[in-house]
Design a protein around this nucleic acid. Structure first.
Length: 480
RNA sequence: GGGAUCGUGGUCUAGCUUGGUAUGAUUCUGCGUUUGGGACGCAGAGACCGCGUGUUCAAAUCACGCCGAUCCCA
């Protein structure tokens, strides 16, 4: 029939890039804005973001972090205060040069990130060791001009994110914070989005400009490319010195403070789409799904209609008492088949079909989105749906782990490395630590060091590129 | 950074070579019939042909510029 024209028109396997874009648009998560590189979030897309935001807020709060808000404009004089940091961001900064018809003196940057602004204020707020630790998180957007190859959620010139900025009296305390946050990121992504991640440190070349070091959370996508899904930076005193973030210690001696910054963005949504979606469209993990259960009533006579709708509402109310987000699709003018496809496109984790035959058998038909499996569920077992949603959440993480495992290889020969990198994946290999080798590998294969495992340096081998003895075992991949 | 492709009702698209006021499907609205994997009939709605300039009696069509989207390579 004309089926191909309505749903996703390409398969995930054959044309991943096109598939991804179609899912984003057709599942109504987002749309393009009239300005290059910008997207608009629609309610289903924003709802997923809100769900993640709520989880992070809860965990941040438990960790003593509070939320604040910063303005979007940063004067050039401030942004340029830390030289390396500025040089790193400058090429992609949007500048405001006019207010009305008048040129502004110190031109204003639309924030690419808020370190400089936040720390100029922190230096005012912090006087004593009693003011520390100071831990504030900001939910906002950042703007970085992407010249080409933009992609909804993955690379856009403006993106929703959170940026946390903490200040500590000691190096140890700050470093602990860096890893505590990384752990929160990992748990949240695995538990809420059902995406397995690796954590580790970035190489010198790949670290955040201005940081002492950067820790990262990365995942391998089904097309074999790696996606950076969150970073947590140890800033040392690199910013506290130029921004004068100082405190008087107990002995009344002034010290520069130790700082961290960290963030995750709506890229997480992009990752979720890529990892779980299929040729039917989006597949949502139950925990973040705006609608967790959709009920499609089926009937043909008025008599049936009355009985079916009655039972439908009963089930809906029962599910709502256990906080399940449920929707009844009672649209009269479209067929059940259309509805099935419609909700599959939107990725709703569970569908309940209920018709006259089911009422007769005192059951419903339950269809699981992620597996396509259909089972019969007796009316008396409706209460088990909560449990089934949890099972789906767990199974989705498991199958994503399998998928990631298949895309991860140990490789020790450079010709094999080069050849296999064409098809992508995470490669565990040895590296001598020299930036030249890292650079050459990037030139040859397009791959870079995604991360160096935290518990590294236990093994010995030879650098994949120069063959010198090495103890570092980074994970290489081509990235988004 | 280098290269290529594309832009026509909400969506997909014909028309462009050879200039003459836009084709079809889907969608949407109304009425009726329908409803267990993308139902059907009838009537109706919906287009500054991405934007701008130029050529021309006349531009969706030709030329130039801009904007936007997509893909490939570094």
């Amino acid at each position: 029939m004309v089926k191909e024209k309505i749903g996703i028109t390409v398969s995930k396997k054959d044309d991943f890039s096109e598939w991804y874009t179609q899912v984003v648009l057709k599942a109504k998560l987002a749309d393009y804005a009239p300005v290059k590189g910008l997207i608009v979030l629609r309610p289903d897309g924003y709802s997923i973001w809100e769900s993640l935001k709520n989880t992070f807020d809860r965990k941040f709060s438990q960790n003593g972090i509070r939320n604040g808000f910063l303005p979007v404009l940063i004067p050039e004089s401030l942004l340029g205060k830390e030289k390396k940091h500025f040089a790193g961001f400058n090429p992609e900064v949007f500048w405001v040069t006019h207010s009305g018809n008048n040129e502004v003196g110190d031109k204003l940057a639309l924030r690419p990130t808020s370190e400089t602004l936040a720390y100029s204020l922190y230096s005012k707020w912090i006087k004593s060791w009693r003011d520390l630790p100071l831990k504030i998180n900001f939910w906002n957007t950042a703007l970085r001009a992407e010249i080409k190859a933009t992609k909804p959620f993955l690379r856009t010139s403006e993106f929703l994110w959170q940026e946390g900025h903490t200040v500590h009296t000691t190096k140890e305390e700050a470093e602990n914070e860096v890893f505590k946050i990384l752990e929160i990121y990992k748990n949240t992504v695995e538990e809420e989005l059902a995406i397995p991640v690796l954590i580790g440190k970035k190489s010198e070349k790949e670290k955040f400009v201005g940081a002492e070091y950067t820790t990262t959370m990365e995942s391998i996508m089904p097309d074999g490319k790696a996606l950076q899904m969150g970073t947590s930076h140890f800033l040392g005193q690199n910013f506290s010195k130029p921004f004068d973030v100082k405190f008087a210690d107990k002995d009344n001696v002034e010290h520069f403070a130790w700082q961290t910054s960290w963030g995750v963005s709506w890229r997480l949504i992009g990752a979720m789409i890529m990892v779980h979606g299929d040729d039917q469209g989006l597949v949502l993990p139950p925990k973040v799904a705006p609608t967790q259960v959709v009920i499609v009533p089926i009937y043909n006579s008025d008599d049936d209609k009355k009985r079916v709708l009655e039972k439908t509402n009963e089930i809906k109310e029962q599910l709502e008492t256990t906080q399940i987000r449920v929707h009844v699709d009672d649209r009269n003018e479209i067929s059940p088949g259309y509805k099935f496809n419609d909700w599959e496109m939107k990725g709703v984790p569970l569908r309940i079909e209920i018709g006259p035959k089911d009422i007769q058998k005192q059951q419903v038909v339950l269809a699981k989105r992620y597996s396509g499996e259909k089972i019969n569920l007796g009316f008396e077992d409706i209460g088990k749906i909560d449990e089934i949603l949890n099972e789906i959440q767990v199974s989705m993480l498991e199958s994503a782990r399998e998928q990631a495992k298949e895309n991860t290889k140990n490789i020790s020969g450079y010709s094999e490395f080069k050849e296999k990198m064409q098809t992508g994946g995470f490669f565990n290999s040895f590296w001598c630590g020299k930036p030249e080798c890292e650079e050459k590998i990037k030139e040859d294969t397009g791959a870079d060091i995604r991360l160096i495992p935290l518990d590294d340096k236990n093994k010995e081998g030879n650098c994949i590129y120069c063959n010198e003895p090495s103890t570092i075992t980074p994970v290489f991949a081509r990235g988004y």
